[in-house]
Design a protein around this nucleic acid. Structure first.
Length: 115
RNA sequence: CGAGUAAGACAGACAGUCGCGCGGUCGGGGCGAAAGGCUCGGUCGUGAGGAAAGUCCGGGCUCCACAGGGCAAGAAUAACGGGUAACGCCCGCCGAGAGCGAUCUCAGGAAAAGUGCAACAGAAAUAGACUGCCCCGCUUGUCGGGGUGAUGGUGGAAAGGUGCGGUAAGAGCGCACCCGACGGCGUGGAAGCGUCCGUCGCUGUAAACUCUAUUCGGAGCAACACCGGUAUGGGAGCAAACAGGCUUGCCCGGCCGCUCCCGGGGUGGCUGGAUCGCCGCGGCAACGCGGCGGCUAGAUAGAUGACUGUCAAAUACAGAACCCGGCUUACAGUUUUGCUCGCACC
RNA sequence: AGCGGGUUUGUGUAAUGGUAGCACACCGGACUCUGACUCCGUUUGUGAGGGUUCGAAUCCUUCACCCGCUG
């Protein structure tokens, strides 16, 4: 199981911008997934939660749930990708199992899921 | 028991599995002469609030200016006394208002320094005279001169109020009671209060200008200090690695996205402080003094999450970003104490 | 994080503390065989709460929302 330390996260604006413009995307009611191959052998995650979704507490909660979904699913994903999760409002109140199922289905359409 | 009022407390807990920030410690890897720091993992400790929010006030801290303070301008505040580092905050008290009451609310100085404004209505808006009432004059009538503010209606406000006397009619013109202002006396630390005495009867508005008193230099941790000395750094737009440019003309090989703008990066500052808890003393209180004990976040794209179980239920408002003291606003539910009113019983 | 500005019918915009106005739009009517144009008329209102004042869009205050600036 890979860790969630700093080296495995996207930070800078140009990294996000590159994933948005060059990567492939998949949509679910709770979030949007962008993915793009990078040159390393491990995955990197970036999470975007816009100010439009709510105040600080709401944004923090959406971001933490999305990271938890990614963390638990990471072991069964293909490696070597930059992944960006964009939160949507319904990720706040949805049951956690729904989020997990939606993430798995979206990754399968993007061919990120390790068979 | 019900209704109310004031002051507080808590802000899900526990267990298990996985996971995150910071600090300590142990071990592995590799750099280095060493000191040291980098990376990976284990383990232990610790990890958001009563409002962390809004950014409405006041400070600390840092830099700039002045280094002697003052004036002007501008801004803020406003009964009185106290508390505080300071405040526009808090406490006490006075006055006014609301409530049966406990209690609550109030930008609550000066309108007799001056200026301004008061629409419409109304005769009249801070001063004159529509209808009335009364007197006088004669040309006797839709007349002229004078007195009056008691009457009518208007207005938020009409020249202290009520009654009696008085008068041609009237009027604080006089008297009694009441209301208010100022001065004296008494009382209180002061604002103030008073069945006392004297003088007087003055529209409202200063959250209109203004006057009086007091306070205020400016910017803000993205402040500031240190390290280091251009790494093809950061931002925006465009393009998409198959193209194009540079390296001597060509090939091989090597290097590089293009244009514009900016000047960057790291570390410290960073959390031990007008600190918190308990006890004692002083004070009506806010608060102060002393003793003992504790150290309870410090991130830098930004750490608290997920699942399961139990507790009746628990997703209330809401997330630290240099730090404090207040104010304001949001808030499910649980709970403590004092007091008031009503009903019943003893 | 620190600052600055704003909010008036559906839209754009006026208004000394004293009846909230104008243009376009909507709706209704007239004109027309019908529609457009044109003419006439009606409705729709000061972001929310509290205060000062006789009286508040305006003055004061507490909030909400929107826009902009620095980085």
């Amino acid at each position: 199981m890979a860790s969630m330390k700093k080296a495995t996260t996207l930070k800078l604006n140009y990294e996000f911008r590159r994933v948005y413009s060059k990567g492939s995307s998949g949509v679910s009611p709770f979030f949007v997934v962008y993915a793009r191959p990078n040159r390393s052998c491990r995955n990197r995650l970036g999470v975007t939660v816009s100010t439009k979704l709510g105040k600080a507490v709401v944004r923090n909660r959406i971001r933490r749930r999305l990271r938890e979904v990614y963390r638990l699913a990471q072991g069964s994903m293909k490696q070597g990708y930059d992944v960006v999760l964009v939160g949507r409002r319904r990720a706040l109140a949805a049951p956690y199992s729904e989020l997990e199922r939606a993430f798995r289905r979206t990754c399968e359409t993007l061919e990120l899921w390790e068979p």
